[in-house]
Amino acid sequence: MKDVLIVDDSALARMIMRRSLGAAGLADAAIREVADGMAALDAVRAQLPDLVIADVNMPNLDGEGLLLSLRSDARLSGVRVLMCSSAMSPAKAARLLRLGAGAVLKKPFSPHELRSALAGALAAA
């Protein structure tokens, strides 16, 4: 069973992602939710997930900050990360991938787009 951590300050966005993961083939995943990057770091340290799905635009510590924090910590650096945002320009997507995101996803997303992004993120080393 996959352990997935959803990180988004919007409760609705977390619920939509949770619902979408079920439709994308991860119905049996153990899903945890937190509302910002700081809480995500705590959750990852407490238990390494198979995948972090993080929004970019969040209070306290945003998604890019979370990604940088994960990649700079030897114990956490191998965690797979899928970044999502509505404000996803090609340049921003490229930067997030360069920083170590396994895949990026633009909101709103279709089930097909989510499946493709999940495949990319879970395949990333």
């Binding site: 919007s10 609705l12 966005a13 939509i16 635009n57 945002s85 509505s86 404000a87 996803m88 633009k106 909101k107 709103p108």
Partner: peptide
């Protein structure tokens, strides 16, 4: 409302 506004603004 907040989530829809967030998505539309970013897009």
């Amino acid at each position: 409302l907040s989530e829809v506004a967030n998505i539309i603004a970013g897009q």
